[in-house]
């Protein structure tokens, strides 16, 4: 976590972009967040060289914890090769002198907005989430004073109102992303816009999960080996999404799928949203019903920059 002393002479920015004072301040917030799992800790969010909504919170968290020995992975949706993920990865390669990777197993820090990778996370890994709205109760209660009181007094009945609405409207608890969880049986938390498919991966995870909301100036955390329970009703238990289709490229039947429209005739295919995972499976020889499709080539993981 310490900045290396042998800084290249031509560096324009401080190591990892943020100045050391700011990083120290953010680390203090992170430590507090880890000490109180699920609790939203305020922090002095800085202006970043990307607009809000592009991951400013996650970038600041990463900048505060990264060191030159880290191996950095960044994904947007499930993919490493989307514009946003590529530019954030390049940013840290340049300002923090880190190696980057697309392989989940190799990474020490994984920054994400929408997904938790399919490959199981391990001890020592840190997930960093870019969070647009940290307050799970905000949609129902606009007053900050009131949501603070609700957290302080553990009054979470209101959150069930959104579940009630969902069952009333769809006959089940719908809502794919940002599905609310109770952390360590104490704090209500929004796991950011990850699909509820990924919620169970937070429960008793080996990895440390850090959530940064830049615009809302909040940091929160799920430390390793912490209970994370998705809210539900007694008669409508929590369920994750599932697909009848296997991945068209790698044949995986257990991963989170993206639907890809192939043509105007309504032909479509389902592929793993985690492109690195899918690529790895194909390398190992798994092949799905549409293996060899043009998308197959596009998706092959390149070597890390």
């Amino acid at each position: 976590m310490n900045a290396p002393s042998n800084l290249p002479a031509n560096r324009v920015y401080n190591y990892a972009y943020l100045d050391e004072q700011t990083k120290r301040m953010i680390r203090r917030s992170i430590l507090k967040a880890i000490a109180i799992p699920g609790y939203q800790v305020p922090f002095g969010s800085r202006e970043m060289p990307v607009p809000y909504g592009w991951g400013t919170g996650g970038i600041q968290v990463t900048a505060s914890i990264i060191g030159p020995d880290d191996v950095y992975k960044c994904i947007d949706q499930g993919a490493d090769d989307t514009t946003n993920a590529v530019s954030i990865r390049r940013f840290f390669a340049r300002v923090a002198d880190v190696a980057t990777t697309e392989q989940t197993e190799e990474a020490t820090i994984i920054q994400t907005r929408h997904r938790i990778p399919e490959a199981p996370l391990q001890e020592g890994q840190i997930m960093v989430y870019q969070v647009p709205q940290p307050e799970p109760l905000r949609g129902l209660e606009p007053r900050e004073t009131e949501t603070r009181a609700m957290h302080a007094y553990e009054e979470y009945g209101l959150q069930y109102l959104s579940l009630y609405e969902s069952v009333a409207a769809y006959g089940r608890i719908a809502g794919g992303a940002g599905y609310p969880v109770l952390v360590d049986e104490r704090y209500l938390m929004s796991p950011s816009p990850i699909p509820k498919f990924d919620n169970p991966k937070l429960h008793q995870s080996e990895a440390l999960h850090l959530f940064g909301a830049g615009r809302e100036k909040r940091i929160y955390a799920v430390p390793p080996h912490t209970d994370v329970r998705s809210l539900d009703f007694e008669d409508y238990p929590f369920e994750i999404q599932s697909w009848d289709e296997v991945c068209a490229l790698c044949n995986c039947d257990s991963s989170y799928k993206d639907e890809v429209i192939l043509d105007d005739d309504g032909n479509r295919m389902f592929v793993c949203s985690d492109s690195a995972y899918c690529g790895e499976r194909r390398k190992q020889g798994h092949s799905g019903p549409l293996a060899g499709h043009a998308l197959d080539q596009l998706d092959q993981p390149e070597d890390a920059e």
Partner: peptide, 25 residues
């Protein structure tokens, strides 16, 4: 609460008081 249905408005106090069975509410 203008953003949620009439039924949810009526059931809210039950949820606030810890009830967690949709069908009953």
């Amino acid at each position: 609460r203008m953003r949620v249905s009439g039924g949810a408005n009526v059931a809210e106090p039950l949820m606030m008081n810890g009830r967690r069975h949709y069908g009953e509410m």
